[in-house]
Amino acid sequence: MGGYGEVHYTNPTGPGTPPVASLARFVVYLAHSFDDRLALRSELEVEDAKVEGGAAGGEVSLEQAYLDYRLAERLTLRTGLVLPPIGIINETHEPPSFNGVERPGFDHDVIPTTWRELGVGVVGTVPGKVGLAYRVYLVNGIRAEGFSGDQGIRGGRQEGQDASFANPSFTGRLEWAQPGWKVGASFWYGGTADTNSAVGRGAFAAPVTLLSADARYERGPLALRGVVANVSVSDAQAINAAYGQSVGSRIAGGYLEAAYKLLQTLSAFARHERYDTQADVPVGVTRDRSLARRITTLGVTYKPTWNTAFKGDYQLVRNAAGAGEHQVLSLGVGYQF
């Protein structure tokens, strides 16, 4: 049994935007080993402290719940509600593991964390190649019905709720780790039409292809990390026609972050994100340049222990259209155990 949680206080500038405090996440991690080979792992999450019938906000959900069957030392079979192994934050999202009160905007609008889907796959290390590991899953697809211009494919996630398996999808990752280093490459490929023949027919109709690369480096007091991703929405025009949206045909971007340990327990960081959920648009959509976002975050993280974090940061939220630009001051605490 374990868990993690985070409390946020955010104060954006601009009229009609009062500061908000929220118990953003409270997560209970439960695991059980049936024997030395078979184990259940699960995370049950309450978002924004409570859920009330009929009221907006709040969410109770399973973030992950899967069975691991260790076939061999280097090979595990995994089935259930799994996390697509894409980027850095989706699989490793405990608050002390990242800088900044909120997860990067990129990890909301481009890689839609916490992304989880139902499926089956294998997890292992490459024999004879020390440091090389992989994870590959066959999962339910995402649904084009939920796509949007400003949040890309985020609304298309099914998250294990009566998930349609009309579009089986593949996702996976290859990563290489050394002390101080980790680099990875991830993908997602699958159709999104579900049962809407106006969007497309067949298991791989209206496919989405996501490719991503990430790197983390730590040396002495310095920690660097970066992620890039490119999402191609092949039939964005048909999707927009069917659902009246303005989904981009390409969603792309990334971020770079540098952190420096001022003391053993205190680090300062700077992160710059650039991403556009309409990097390319299909016929019929006029590019909204305010979706080309540039977010700069400056902040500090105080970690009295390695698994607790007190965070403060200041964000400059900008976009290529110069519309609705603002600043956000955030404070937060997070823990894991």
């Binding site: 850095i88 020390v130 780790a177 101080g180 730590e218 340990k261």
Partner: peptide, 29 residues
């Protein structure tokens, strides 16, 4: 992984063995 375990070789009980100092961490682990 051997490159990570290797960092411990030659250490004695008197040596300082700290993550982030003598022992480099691995992201995600």
């Amino acid at each position: 992984y051997e490159p990570w375990r290797r960092q411990f070789r030659g250490k004695t009980a008197a040596d300082s063995v700290r993550v982030g100092k003598e022992i480099r961490s691995i992201s995600g682990a």
